[in-house]
Design a protein around this nucleic acid. Structure first.
Length: 662
DNA sequence: GTAATATAGCTTTTT
DNA sequence: GCTATATTAC
């Protein structure tokens, strides 16, 4: 019970008011995770709740693990029984149970945005809709937005009446049908389908909502409409729903998250116990004061004043650099200086927070040069590399051969003489007989539709792999697939420099699978593939590694660092130009607030006067957010009057650009 | 019919 | 700066 004694009065309230709906508005650094864990521990220890009846939904898998780890210290082995995960992992679990129930043979495959895009293109070509008529990219976007709001293809058509939407609805419908025949789900489906299941099947509703006596949802400000509905259904029997969040930290509106979910929670759930955690335990007074002075500029807020008992600390620094390289230079020098001053300060105490992924480059270059250990989260990921995607396609096809998209991806990789013509032939077999691509290949081989060569050889070796894999360990399956298919040999034959690296990456993948296998001996190949698909950037952050972390502010949500560099504080970049155009400046301001409140001891804000994007270099004006910080919290430094001089120079430069050749 | 090479086109944030 | 498509070479 000692874990409750260390809580503040409001934290204690939030942790122990367990019955009925509860809304906890938890400011940045207010000890939210502690409250959540104490609450679950209180349920298990004091209220004798079976841990298997508790559902905790978090924003990242890492957050779920963290809760479980802390919980284990309080309640021991019972911690493992609590169901904790992201909306997507919880949804996947439910769908898998239903998948098994419905008696399908292959595994359930998760399609990421790349797969989604390919499938949309495929569907469009089948429907004879051309890219110039409607870009496949915007179709994917529309489909995802629709799923955030739980709008089916049929409903989509009735909600939107215009010509554009009619085409989207057609593609969306065909796309959805394809997913179902292939046993695949996209990210949206992981929420929508469980939601629909609960809404339409009273048995399923009784099963799940009966089981989850206590439901906790973290980062509630970033839930979308479908997630809100799913939550509501899951908690519908016992109505013990605890929503935790901070409207000031809502930064995923562009992805369909609805800040209204938290703002209107008390209206939707009558008799809600409302707790505000307003004491910040993380940052110095100067950092918090600076962050507060920015966020109060937002109109759409819940009344809340974050305060701290922490020392004043240093004032926030703002540094205007000549260009993005000088920006990186300043950061590098500062890191080195701080490390040399205090031996207790380590590289892992620093983070560079960017608005966009592309901003990381100059930092990477300079850190490499100066041998500062660093890690970039997000951006170009290991799993985005071509060779890894190909390798995973092999594994996905083996785990679920009906997944025609991944099957198609490996058919002629490495090149084995199956070209456009051969594929068209198999496609028509598939269409005529209503078969998946894999089945059509088998039929073609059995019917001797192809006398010899690629098609026959390929399907034979694929079948050999498939049947040989039973009883093998996961990493053995992976390595036999990559070697027997000739994929490894394909890269080995190429004597180029990058081929060597690709081979290394493939070996890396196999050993990663081996590690997974050791940690989870009972898991299947599909389990591994799904884990990888649902992994987020933040999940890749490991505080044990002593390195400087470079990441986007979005990925930094929920993390904290002693020293934070918020870089690229420039109009057009942060706030981003498109946000200004689209009128979502308040979300940018919240993003700025999230970035600033990651800092515990020192916060540095930086901007560049010149920044190159692509081939163009443009003059930048410092972000409005800098000017919104109350001067008391900023280190005194002459800020040149905003605009004027810079705009003047820009105007002159434009004039020259128009008259002078490059 | 298939494979290698040149060209255009896009870069906000992501489960 | 890097990936999907169009063109040409084999």
């Amino acid at each position: 019970m000692s874990f409750l004694k260390t809580l503040s009065k409001t934290q204690f309230d939030a942790a122990t008011h367990t019955e009925g709906p509860v809304l906890i508005v938890a400011g940045a650094g207010s000890g939210k995770t502690r409250v959540l864990t104490s609450r679950i521990a209180h349920l298990i220890i004091n209220k004798k709740v079976d841990p298997a009846n508790i559902l905790a939904v978090t924003f990242t898998n890492k957050a779920a693990h963290e809760i479980k780890e802390r919980l284990e210290k309080l309640v021991g082995a019972d911690a493992e029984k609590v169901i904790a995960g992201t909306f997507h992992t919880v949804g996947l679990r439910m769908l898998q149970e239903e998948h098994v129930r419905s008696g399908r043979k292959g595994a359930l495959t998760i399609y990421d945005e790349d797969d989604q895009h390919l499938l949309v293109k495929f569907v469009m070509s089948e429907l004879g809709i051309e890219e110039k008529e409607i870009p496949s990219k915007s179709v994917v976007w529309e489909i995802n937005l629709a799923k955030n709001d739980n709008i089916t293809p049929y409903k989509y058509l009735s909600v939107k009446g215009d010509a554009f939407s009619a085409i989207v609805a057609r593609i969306y419908g065909a796309y959805q049908k394809k997913l179902e025949t292939m046993g695949a789900v996209d990210f949206g489906d992981l929420i929508c389908r469980p939601m629909t299941l609960l809404a339409t099947d009273p048995d399923a509703l009784a099963r799940y909502s009966g089981r989850f006596r206590y439901v906790l949802v973290d980062e509630f400000q970033d839930t979308n409409k479908s997630q809100y509905e799913l939550t509501k259904l899951l908690a519908s029997t016992h109505k013990n729903l605890c929503a935790v969040g901070d409207p000031d930290q809502s930064i995923y509106g562009w992805r369909g998250a609805s800040i209204e979910n938290i703002l209107k929670f008390r209206e939707d759930y009558a008799g809600t116990k409302y707790v505000k955690l307003e004491q910040n335990y993380r940052s110095t007074r100067n950092i918090l004061g600076a962050a507060n002075s920015v966020i109060v500029k937002n109109e759409k807020r819940l009344e809340k004043t974050l305060w701290t008992g922490n020392p004043d600390g240093e004032k926030v620094s703002y540094e205007e650099c000549l260009n993005e390289y000088q920006e990186a230079r300043f950061v590098t020098t500062t890191i080195k200086k701080l490390i040399s001053i205090d031996p207790l300060i380590k590289f892992k105490d620093f983070t560079i927070l960017c608005r966009t992924n592309t901003q990381s480059r100059p930092f990477e270059e300079l850190f490499f040069e100066e041998s500062i250990p660093y890690k970039v989260l997000g951006g170009f990921k290991f799993f985005d590399r071509r060779e890894i995607k190909d390798a995973l396609a092999y594994l996905k096809a083996l785990a679920n051969p009906d997944d025609s998209l991944n099957f198609l991806r490996i058919v002629n990789v490495p090149p084995r003489g199956i070209g456009k013509a051969a594929l068209e032939k198999v496609h028509s077999i598939a269409n005529v007989h209503g078969l998946t691509l894999y089945e059509a290949f088998r039929k073609a081989a059995a019917d001797k539709a192809f006398s010899k060569g690629g098609v026959i050889d390929f399907i034979e070796s694929f079948e050999r792999l498939r049947h040989g894999s039973s009883g093998m360990g996961l990493h053995e399956i992976a390595s036999s697939a990559l070697y027997a298919s000739g994929y490894m040999a394909f890269w080995e034959a190429k004597k180029t420099e990058d081929a060597e690296e690709r081979l290394k990456n493939l070996e890396g993948l196999i050993s990663a699978i081996k590690n997974f296998e050791t940690s989870r001996p009972k898991a299947s190949l599909a389990d591994y593939l799904n884990l990888v698909a649902l992994m987020s950037d933040a999940d890749n952050y490991d505080e044990k590694n002593n390195r400087v972390t470079i990441m986007t502010i979005h990925s930094a949500k929920g993390l904290e660092f002693p020293f934070v560099f918020l870089v690229g504080m420039e109009e057009g970049l942060f706030p981003h130009k498109r946000s200004v155009d689209e009128g979502t400046i308040e979300e940018e301001r919240r993003l700025c607030y999230v970035g600033m409140t990651r800092a515990k001891r020192l916060l540095f804000l930086l901007s560049a006067k010149n920044r190159s994007a692509g081939k163009e270099t443009s003059l930048q004006i410092r972000s409005r957010f800098i000017d919104e910080i109350a001067p008391d919290f900023l280190k005194k430094k002459e800020l040149c009057p905003k605009g004027t001089a810079q705009e003047h120079i820009q105007a002159i430069k434009k004039l020259f650009a128009a008259t002078l050749p490059e």
